[in-house]
Amino acid sequence: MPQTWLITGSSRGLGRALAEAVLEAGHNLVATARAPEQLADLARHFPDTMVAVALDVTDAQAAKQAVALAVERFGTLDILVNNAGYGDLAPIEDASLESFRRQIETNLFGTIIVTKAALPLFRERRSGRFIQISSIGGRAGAIGRGPYSAAKFGVEGFSEVLAQEVRPFGLHVTIVEPGGFRTDFAGASTLIEDGHPDYAETVGAVAARQRAYDGNQPGDPAKAAQAILTLAALPAPPLRLVLGSDAFDRAAALDQARIDELHQWRALSRSTDF
């Protein structure tokens, strides 16, 4: 049975791949982007099942209008994918406060704003799914991406709380943590700065790898889109899903290291009780 999806950041990258997969699977789609004209080709191919709309995810009123449009055009909204986001690369010391604010506004507040726009509808219907596109950088701090990781860690905490609050209503929340996928995230969408020479061994080295990495990422966006379609059909989806072998390996190593560290310092941790 066709469902109605709303995907933010649909014009390129993973959002575009997912938009194409959703439409090809026969679903309805409200595809949002800052520049919806970039979706004109999809709108021509799927005139009855797709509507493209301009959306700045930091605009709460516009987010509510996008949700209302889904209901007006297709009668309902079933799945919200908070995908819009970006991440620049620079040392924390060199990244301006304005850069921090912009990235946190888009990646974190954008997710909060669009989630809150859809939440009353989902709660009233006792049906709906939130798919929050985070990053492996929201699970493991990424050198050079302080603002981005700060925002994505926030998305994860926000979404964990959301999942617990809406579970009694039959709603589902899944945090998706992609690794490196062959999109323009590491290219045109990212400002890469080496920063102060003192950071050459850390941020500078990551910046060099990132430039070489662009176009050579292991992840296939089309396969990621199919994985998300599979996720959206699960009756009991996971709270978290990593995407990509690189993300899986990093998450597994990090989680084990955290467990080991937790137990190493167990005595000191437990010594603070009355």
Rank of each mutant, 00 (worst) to 15 (best):
S99L: 13
L77I: 05
G87F: 01
E156L: 03
D88Y: 09
E177I: 03
V114S: 10
A140H: 13
L77W: 01
R123A: 11
V173C: 03
I79S: 02
D88N: 14
I112R: 04
E160M: 13
R102G: 03
A140S: 05
I133Q: 14
T115H: 05
A163G: 01
A90F: 13
T76Q: 04
I175A: 02
R129D: 03
R145F: 08
Y148P: 10
A117I: 08
G157S: 12
E98S: 15
P178C: 05
G180F: 10
V155P: 12
G179V: 11
L89P: 01
I136C: 13
F109Y: 15
L80N: 10
A84L: 07
T76F: 02
L108W: 11
L97Y: 08
R129I: 03
G144C: 10
F109Q: 06
E124T: 14
E93I: 02
V114W: 11
H172G: 09
Y148V: 00
G128T: 02
G157N: 06
L171Q: 08
N82V: 05
R145L: 12
S99Q: 10
G110R: 07
P178Q: 01
P147R: 00
T111D: 13
S134R: 06
S134V: 05
R145S: 14
V161G: 15
F130L: 07
F130Y: 13
E105G: 02
R102C: 04
G154R: 11
V176N: 13
Q103E: 12
G170A: 04
G110M: 03
L97Q: 04
A150Y: 03
P91E: 02
V176S: 04
T174P: 08
E156F: 07
L97T: 12
I112F: 04
P120E: 15
R139T: 14
L162H: 03
G85D: 09
A150W: 01
T115A: 13
G87Q: 01
I79M: 01
E156N: 08
P168E: 01
G110F: 01
F153N: 04
H172C: 08
P147M: 04
R102D: 13
R102A: 15
A117M: 10
G141L: 07
L97G: 15
K116I: 11
F122S: 08
E105P: 01
T76C: 07
F109C: 02
S135L: 01
Y148C: 02
A84C: 09
L80G: 02
F169H: 13
E160V: 06
P168I: 00
N107W: 00
V161D: 08
R125A: 15
